[in-house]
Nucleic acid binder design. Structure first.
Lengths: 241, 241
DNA sequence: TAGTGGTCTAGACCACAAA
DNA sequence: TTGTGGTCTAGACCACTAA
């Protein structure tokens, strides 16, 4: 039900309630969604409020409307997922692998000239450096080097455990939400270090990705370099005209 | 002004009018947009209608709202461009190169089993095959193999000229608009053929992209395989949480 | 014809920013 | 204090779908 005393808008509360019914599987793809009239009655809010909540579900791609027929639960498409920021664990599980992690290095360092410009910090300012080897079904898949602005997540390297999601930790312990990211993707040849870490031959093709992640306040918070095994890893994305 | 007799909704007419003021440059980034109250008065519509039009401008990224301050014209950001379908020519010019093209093959073929599933055609149905070498400042940059459903663009291989954009040709001569695409990105090692075409050593890192493009009616129309030189080509994209 | 979503009105009160 | 956008109400009429 809608909490009338909450500072959260009615439409947003309703949105979350309706979304839960879909993501929990209570309503399945193709099912008809409760009509606007039913929602008015059930939740005792005006039609504009109901429509505002439904607009958000439509924007999320969770439902679609057909004039004269009703509102229906959408069939999830792979495409919708393609440009989302996904954790390595999520990514591997989607592909049917079991994800594992080895921590190769975790230390607080001082920002060098290169990082200063990328993460908008001052030279010498503290950064958290984390180097991890990512495994899929116990085989090396990717090598990841993360640099975080330590100021926003002090002590994160002590809190981090291999089975944790860095993303979740940032959100739950520090209230830092990764909202957007930009990335550059290149194909490179494995140098000795990378080859050894990933158990491939020197010179093997590597999918190299540099990502800068931003908080919901549009502040750069993480710089990530990833070396994926070219023979094992595929990146998907979607384009619009 | 709003045409009250049009079948086009008021909010949509208003949206187009306001958008025109921005894209024409009459309103510049950072400028304050007319307030909702002003728009009510000027266009003699209700506030809900004004807000619906403004919602669309916000969704387009053309304006942003600040409670208590007003609505402002947004600064176009590079990031917004990152997930757009871009032609090779556009792409190279953005980077400051001069784009060139050599046609290596252009012929009508019959769909084999692999293509049948990708482009949703029948086995043996006609497809247009086009193999092009892409140059940046006269250096080989990428090797592209396009497969088009010939039925939607009969005779396109005769109409195509090296300095043309395939995308423009499809739109202008056949009314086919490429609206969305999905792509897979991998790092591979150059085999003999690819190495020779791109003037790199065999085994050099190649950024390999497979793209399926869809029309605005969501019909698959083109299958594109691209081999980019790893030492020269970088792919950019943007992610959301 | 009954029921659905699409559009539109004319108000109201609120939170927030700036003077 | 004034003006802005944010939220909300209680209606209305319309276009479309399906029975």
């Amino acid at each position: 039900m809608i909490n009338r005393d909450s500072r959260e808008p009615y439409y947003y509360q309703l949105y979350r309630l309706l979304r839960e019914d879909i993501t929990s599987g209570k309503l399945k793809p193709g099912d008809m969604h409760p009509t606007e009239a039913e929602l008015l009655e059930t939740f005792q809010v005006s039609r504009a409020t109901v429509r505002q909540a439904l607009d958000m579900l439509v924007a999320d791609g969770l439902v679609f409307r057909q004039r004269g027929r009703g509102t229906f639960i959408a069939r999830p498409t792979v495409e919708k997922e393609l440009n989302r920021i996904v954790s390595f664990t999520e990514d591997m599980e989607r592909l049917g692998f079991t994800a594992g992690t080895q921590i190769l290095a975790a230390e607080v360092q001082q920002a060098d000239e290169a990082i200063v410009h990328i993460l908008d910090v001052n030279r010498g300012q503290e950064i958290a450096y984390l180097k991890r080897l990512r495994l899929a079904d116990d085989d090396p898949m990717s090598l990841e080097e993360s640099v975080l602005v330590h100021h926003y997540c002090p002590g994160i390297l002590d809190a981090y455990q291999p089975h944790h999601s860095l993303r979740q930790l940032l959100q739950q312990q520090y209230g830092v939400v990764l909202a957007t990211a930009t990335q550059k993707v290149r194909a490179i040849s494995a140098d000795e270090t990378v080859a050894e870490s990933l158990s491939v031959d020197e010179g093997a093709a590597i999918l190299y990705i540099e990502r800068i992640s931003f908080t919901d306040a549009n502040v750069p918070i993480e710089f990530l370099k990833t070396y994926h095994r070219g023979d094992k890893y595929t990146l998907y994305n979607e384009l619009r005209a």
